[in-house]
């Protein structure tokens, strides 16, 4: 039930793999240009702690808590944020 911290923190590859309530730490962004800047702006910086806080009815835009604000992302964009 209570597995160790490291395992819980590291099993996911991208932000999109997080389920509601799970937390991860951003490693890098796999995108360029305006999307990259936008993501950096709202707080998806290397080392930032991100928590998935919910899904939309279709499960596609998911909501992530990062640096105190809730940001909605689509799957295409979420998959470009890689976690530690």
């Amino acid at each position: 039930m209570s597995s160790n911290d490291t395992e819980r923190l590291h099993p996911k590859h991208s932000l999109w793999d997080l389920q509601s309530g799970e937390t991860g730490i951003v490693e890098r962004l796999e995108c360029l240009g305006s999307l990259r800047r936008r993501l950096l702006d709202v707080g998806f910086v290397t080392g930032a702690r991100v928590q998935c806080v919910g899904k939309s009815p279709h499960g596609d835009p998911k909501a992530f808590l990062v640096r105190g604000a809730v940001i909605a992302l689509r799957s295409e964009d979420g998959k470009k944020i890689l976690l530690e």
Binding site: A48, R49, L65, G68
Partner: peptide, 29 residues
């Protein structure tokens, strides 16, 4: 903040958590 599937606490949101907390919070314990 619990990632455990069956735990009701997994829905908890730590609104406004700043990175100063990053170091001293134990998220799953």
């Amino acid at each position: 903040i619990c990632g455990h599937e069956t735990c009701p606490l997994r829905n908890t949101c730590s609104c406004g958590q700043s990175s100063s907390l990053r170091k001293n919070t134990v998220p799953y314990g």
